[in-house]
Write a protein that binds this DNA or RNA. Structure first.
Lengths: 174, 174
DNA sequence: AAGACTCTAGTCAGTACTGTCTATTGTTTT
DNA sequence: AAAACAATAGACAGTACTGACTAGAGTCTT
């Protein structure tokens, strides 16, 4: 299985509620905000093409229905695609890979900076995390479906862990 | 800046304490265990070559000093490489990108499973996390240098956050 | 001492992904 | 109504990364 199964799962999941074009999928993804900030546009087209070749999706060319557009490609999920969706869903929920954020590497080389600068940098980091947190919380409407908020809750959880780690670490540096 | 600056930082950091070959760097990386589980061997060689081309490293061919081996390539950090190291170190400590673990995507599509199976899968996930935690803690010798344990502490922090999230979520599903 | 197996030290073909570019239509400004 | 700008829709060149393979040297087995 590829390293980024969740991207495939995401696209298959969206296609379960009806055929879509690549651009529509891209917009939906962007609209989700802080969730799904990986998965760029170019990658969407790449993955759709790959899934079509492997039989999980069917492609049909649609000549500009909603106005005189140029031809667009519409993707429809197949039975084999639905099976793959379920496989991926189970696999992703079951397995755990610790995230590699890169800050661990930074911490290892912390002695190359003096304490004042290190503290300064971690304080800036704290600010960045708080900004992300605010953005995420701003998106969390209580009107949303329960499961979407469960997903956002996971992100929030990791962000809060990061935050408290930063604060503990700044203190330890003194 | 590339998406995986921390890999470059890691290699530059190791080369600060003397010239090394690609294979040596690979072994050191593996020996670090749960830290650095990204960065595979092939990628090490790729990155070294790239950094050499951009002037951060110097390459010298060494004809089998410790025995009749075939020629090995030895990489030495340059002044420009040291500057880059400091830039990367600062940038990585300062900036924050929320990790994309993929489980959020899984949570969004949780309604496609019945509650019993979802609970089962999350329980298996809990087990996987506990295993990783044990592996990491097993590596954390108190004899280690302070800053290395700071790095491991970050990972541990995220793992514990994941763990408590899983437990909360399993309860919520009832 | 022949065979099997591991460790060293990479190479490379192919996959996954990004950023930038193009071209058309729709909307807003002046 | 012309100019300027945003949104739609995707292509594609190039970068980053992986996994499988090669091949010689050392070690262990029977």
């Amino acid at each position: 299985m590829g390293i980024a199964m969740h991207k495939e799962l995401h696209l298959l999941g969206l296609l379960q509620s009806g055929p879509r074009t690549g651009y529509q999928l891209h917009r939906i993804t962007k609209a989700h905000g802080e969730l799904y900030t990986d998965l760029k546009k170019g990658n969407v087209y790449y993955l759709l093409d790959r899934m079509a070749r492997s039989g999980e999706l069917e492609v049909t060319a649609e000549a500009g229905a909603p106005g005189p557009r140029r031809e667009r490609l519409v993707y429809t999920i197949t039975e084999s695609g639905r099976q793959r969706f379920h496989e991926l869903l189970r696999e992703i929920l079951r397995a755990y890979d610790p995230p590699h954020t890169g800050v661990e590497v930074g911490m290892v080389f912390l002695p190359y900076l003096d304490v004042a600068e290190a503290t300064q940098l971690l304080t800036e980091r704290r600010r960045a995390v708080l900004d992300r947190r605010a953005a995420l919380v701003g998106e969390m409407e209580p009107s949303d479906h329960e499961h979407v908020s469960l997903a956002q809750d996971h992100l929030l959880c990791l962000i809060d862990a990061e935050l408290s780690w930063i604060e503990r670490t700044i203190e330890r540096l003194q």
